[in-house]
Amino acid sequence: MLRQAAAAAAGGQQYPAATLYLVATPIGNLADLSLRAIHCLGLVDALACEDTRQGGALLRHLGLHKPLLALHQHNEREASAAVLARLAAGERVAYASDAGTPAISDPGAVLVREAVAAGYRVLPLPGPSSAAAALSVAGDTQAQGFAFVGFLPTKAGERRTALQAVLAVQGQSQLLFEAPHRIVELFGLLAELAPERRVTVCRELTKQFEQVHTAEAAALPAWLAADAQRQRGEFVLVLHAQALQATAEDALPAEALRVLQLLMAELPLKQAVALAAQISGAPRNRLYEAGLAIKNGASAED
């Protein structure tokens, strides 16, 4: 019945032969698997996967039986050749990592590069992503975009240096992954290096005991120690953006600021910024920062 619903919802899409399909799989909750992913898995001739045990379990849940090809970080280059051979024979091949979207802190990038270089189509089937899920609940209003960092180095010195570089970035949310056996150390480093930085901690996203907690870094070690359960599971951290520091070189010209203020009196902020940038030639991001400051200042006076 589930596959019938998937076919009804996604069957109108074209699924060309000799194509590699990157299929996003659930990060914890099986119900997050999309109908399009289910339909595509039913169509492909083989499934390449990071772990054939997990890939096989997913197919069995859907009542499907497909040849499984193991493709993980230790054999990706060699295993890619087997996938390309199937594509050369005109087959459809799907690739799924253990959880989430392939090639984002997971294997898959080498396979994609090899397939594209060989002239085959590579099509994404978007879906579950711990990175997107964490960003959506962070509420980082100061961020102008985000940077995906993934896992920091495991060696202490390299780890500290890498984290210092991440913390120095201005204007962007920084997205980190961490394993449970290193989370105490990471929280300690954050509390030491950036005690006032707001951090959103996402633990066991989409699973039964998922948890989302936002606090200043200085408070994280105590929060973690307060409940032993909080040290379990996989972690996604959003380091909230550090406000951009204005310098004399990037300060807005007085005329650009005047234009922005006039437009803001009549238009929503984004429209006012867009028009002010066209009229004055000033950078849109600086205008947006100035507009937020003006708006927040007006709100504080009300």
Rank of each mutant, 00 (worst) to 15 (best):
W223K: 13
R86N: 08
L237K: 14
T161E: 14
S280H: 13
T247W: 01
R121D: 09
A31E: 15
G11Y: 01
A117H: 06
Q208K: 10
S173P: 07
P268H: 03
A225Q: 06
A115I: 00
F151H: 14
G28Q: 05
Q164M: 01
A5K: 11
L244A: 12
T247H: 09
A115S: 00
E301T: 03
A103N: 13
L30C: 11
Q164T: 03
D98H: 05
G157I: 01
V23T: 05
A8W: 02
I27T: 14
R286D: 03
M264E: 01
L163I: 12
G28P: 09
E204R: 05
V149C: 04
E158P: 03
A191Y: 05
P221E: 06
V116W: 01
T25C: 02
L43F: 02
S173D: 07
A156Q: 09
F148C: 02
T154H: 06
A48D: 03
R286N: 07
A265F: 00
T52I: 11
R198S: 13
H39L: 05
E255G: 13
L189E: 09
L2I: 12
P126E: 12
I104G: 02
P124E: 09
V212L: 03
A191H: 04
A103M: 07
Q261K: 10
Q172C: 13
V238P: 08
A217W: 12
Y15K: 05
V273D: 09
Q261R: 13
Q14S: 15
A8K: 06
L84T: 03
W223Y: 14
Q73V: 04
I27W: 01
A131M: 05
Q242M: 10
L87K: 00
F148L: 02
H213A: 10
L292Q: 15
F187Q: 15
A228Q: 10
R182N: 05
T200S: 10
A37K: 06
R77E: 08
R197E: 15
V199R: 13
Y15H: 02
Q144T: 12
S97G: 12
A265H: 08
A219S: 14
A215I: 10
I38K: 09
A215R: 08
Y288W: 08
D51G: 10
S299R: 15
G42R: 02
R60V: 09
F187S: 14
V122M: 00
E192G: 10
H61A: 01
G150F: 08
A248D: 13
V169L: 10
V166L: 11
P26V: 02
D106L: 07
T161A: 14
L30V: 11
G55K: 03
D106P: 00
E234N: 07
P253C: 09
L237C: 13
V166P: 04
V273Y: 04
A46R: 05
R77Q: 05
R286F: 01
A85E: 11
A246H: 00
A274D: 14
E249K: 13
A24Y: 02
H181E: 11
H74L: 05
Q172F: 12
A276C: 03
L2H: 10
P268N: 13
E76C: 03
A241C: 06
E185R: 06
A18P: 00
L64Y: 08
R198I: 09
A156R: 07
G157T: 07
V83E: 00
E158Y: 09
A277H: 15
P102S: 11
A218L: 02
R160C: 12
T154S: 08
V201T: 09
I27N: 06
A218K: 04
A217E: 08
H240Y: 07
A7H: 09
L125T: 08
